[in-house]
Amino acid sequence: MYDSGKVIIGVLVFLALLLFPVWYNLASGEATTQGPELAKPVKGEACVLETAYMRSNHMDLLDDWRERVVRNGERIFAAPDGQHFEMSLTNTCLDCHADKEKFCDECHTFMAVDPYCWDCHIVPETPTRQEVTYVN
């Protein structure tokens, strides 16, 4: 290979630039291997679907709810465990997960996603927010 030294340096520089977000965040201490600490729900025994599913796929469920409520006029979600819920972000999700900042935002910030649900949907001002405890 001609100019192998230059090529290797070039490749390294390229990789360094490409991986900039990774090493920058590691170096600045912003990134951790620890997930964010989320607020516990203020009430309710079980979520509408299993926690593991909700953690990774709540956006699919919300999208599905939005489709069913707005476009099909359905309102009630029958959970696998027999519970029934109104399909509503504000009235159902936030009723239990009352601390939006320590629940939704905490993880969305960690994941660097910026959903625009809250442009329209309202975060209820709930007095229970102070009582919230945190998962360790």
Partner: peptide, 8 residues
Amino acid sequence: STSVAAPK
């Protein structure tokens, strides 16, 4: 819909 969650 037996136990509908809290409609206002």
